[in-house]
């Protein structure tokens, strides 16, 4: 025990009620941006990085590999999975830009933080849809 904690007045605080609302849909928007920033980051580390490296290697190695993977990427289901990954990247990208702005003390009030969170979700969704329209 440190000297400081021994000097602390020994008053037992009244037991305060705890209320954890862990339902994602009841979180304020900035919290939702934050938790999705974490989830998308983990998804990219676990799945997207190794997959992207494998594809880069396979498509550069030979023309037949390039053609094979180009054809695979033309399957609608594969495109859908790709869109999921693209959304993960784009959400992480826009949420990250928002954090960089917050670090510069831009948009730190509660109202601004909520508005910018809305923008992060909107831009992530719109950019994913535009990407989808491009590859379809």
């Amino acid at each position: 025990m440190s000297a400081r904690s021994q000097n602390r007045p020994k008053v037992r605080l009244k037991v305060r009620p705890k209320y954890y609302d862990l339902n994602l849909f009841n979180l304020p928007l900035p919290a939702l941006v934050s938790i999705f920033h974490r989830i998308t980051g983990m998804v990219m580390f676990l799945f997207m990085i190794p997959l992207a490296l494998y594809l880069l290697q396979a498509t550069l190695k030979s023309e037949s590999g390039f053609n094979f993977w180009s054809n695979v990427l033309n399957f609608p289901l594969v495109k859908l999975i790709l869109l999921g990954f693209v959304w993960a990247f784009l959400h992480h990208f826009f949420a990250g830009l928002r954090y960089l702005l917050l670090d510069l003390h831009i948009g730190v009030t509660k109202a601004e933080a909520r508005t910018s969170s809305m923008w992060v979700f909107a831009l992530g969704a719109v950019a994913t849809i535009l990407f989808g329209a491009r590859i379809w």
Partner: peptide
Amino acid sequence: SVYYHAWIGVRDV
């Protein structure tokens, strides 16, 4: 940059 960034993020998690 990706790998260093991923290390810090995954470590935080």
